[in-house]
């Protein structure tokens, strides 16, 4: 039981990761695929952010009387990764818009030619 509780942040990460991954694979709708991809990426953000926490540490701002700080580096890294994630989502959604114009649908089982199925 303590094995589950002690590592609860990882369980959240694993759940989100698998949920997102499953949506990417199983969803028919291209927008849903992008949403799944986003959930998948968010789980990694959680992984990074929770690893930066130091037990008993405060926010990493220099203050008197504080000796222990949380690690700020993973947070900085994940800011970059969030930007990358947003850019990916933007490109993905732009593609979905163009697919909708070209094919008239965003459901991949409604494409005329089976070769085009994603």
């Amino acid at each position: 039981m303590s094995f589950i509780l002690d590592y609860y942040n990882y369980w959240i990460v694993v759940f989100l990761m698998m949920a997102g991954f499953y949506i990417v694979i199983s969803a028919n709708n291209l927008v849903k695929k992008i949403v799944g991809l986003n959930i998948f990426q968010t789980s990694v953000f959680m992984l990074y952010i929770s690893m930066g926490k130091v037990t008993g540490g405060t926010a990493p701002i220099v203050a008197e009387g504080v000796t222990q700080y949380s690690n700020p580096l993973p947070h900085v890294l994940i800011l970059t990764a969030i930007v990358v994630g947003v850019a990916t989502t933007a490109v993905g959604l732009a593609l979905v818009v163009r697919i909708k114009r070209a094919y008239g649908t965003v459901e991949e089982n409604e494409f005329d030619n089976k070769d085009d199925v994603i």
């Binding site: 291209l30 494409f111 994603i118």
Partner: peptide, 8 residues
């Protein structure tokens, strides 16, 4: 137009 699905 197939380039779009390929890119996706």
């Amino acid at each position: 137009r197939r380039c779009l699905t390929a890119a996706f």
